[in-house]
Design a binder for these strands. Structure first.
Lengths: 137, 137
DNA sequence: TATTGTTATACTCTATAACTATA
DNA sequence: TATAGTTATAGAGTATAACAATA
């Protein structure tokens, strides 16, 4: 049972990485881009990715080198806000569409099955709180 | 929808990594150990992990350095078979138990819900073939 | 003192390409 | 020629610890 879950999770992860790669991104970079609907503090990105804050600097640098994000200081001058450039927003739109379209959940399950799956997954992992329908990640 | 799936997948991946870490392993190393129910060719491990064969050498080396696996030549002398040592088998048993016990699928879902989830996941990712109930991965 | 982000360091995973040895 | 595995190389993600700037 846990094996099935883990295999499904792995397959999903690999599918996502493949899509990210089609857009010239790594999986982590793609998660970053999808997350940046609005200017976001690096600390919050670290939290969302469940990684140490020291990693965020490097990931942001690589995205900035490719012209996908820029930074500016927040009101609290310790905070750096990351936001997508125009190029970044365009990439985000394409990526978001691609992820949704190629999801096996959309192509292989009926509407009822999708609803059931969402309910079970929500029950599985305490995510059952906020539901920002406009965000892909 | 695809967002929910990906979030669930990420949560599952992180949970697995945390358990592996509790046993002193990375996620990939844990998948290796769980896979090694019987002597397995490095090529097959590469296939199972969906990575290039060149990676398997390093992973196997690190596991061997810790006394968890050994190698021997197969009948086809090009092939190297990896197998768990006694220490490795003991670790595998503990790890396997830990993964199963702490799976949210076991602790949060009813038996019926688990059956439904397995059915949907199988439909999602063409895994619906062989079902080696004794393997955790 | 606590928080945000950076830097230095080291390790692991990853792919590609060139290589050895076997078949 | 083709296959199994290794090695060299390079890039990305990861954590830890020490650090600067700000609160």
């Amino acid at each position: 049972m846990s094996r099935r879950l883990h295999e499904a999770s792995e397959a999903s992860r690999q599918a996502f990485a493949a899509i990210a790669s089609d857009h010239g991104l790594t999986a982590v970079q793609a998660r970053f881009v999808l997350r940046l609907l609005e200017p976001t503090a690096m600390k919050d990105l670290a939290e969302h990715l469940a990684c140490d804050k020291s990693n965020v600097t490097g990931i942001a640098t690589r995205l900035a080198e490719r012209g996908l994000v820029t930074t500016r200081r927040g009101p609290d001058r310790r905070v750096k806000l990351l936001e997508l450039t125009t190029t970044g927003r365009r990439l985000r739109a394409r990526l978001s569409e691609h992820v949704a379209d190629s999801s096996p959940a959309m192509t292989r399950l009926t509407k009822t099955e999708r609803a059931t799956l969402v309910r079970l997954l929500d029950k599985l992992h305490d995510t059952g709180v906020g539901d920002d329908a406009s965000a892909d990640l």
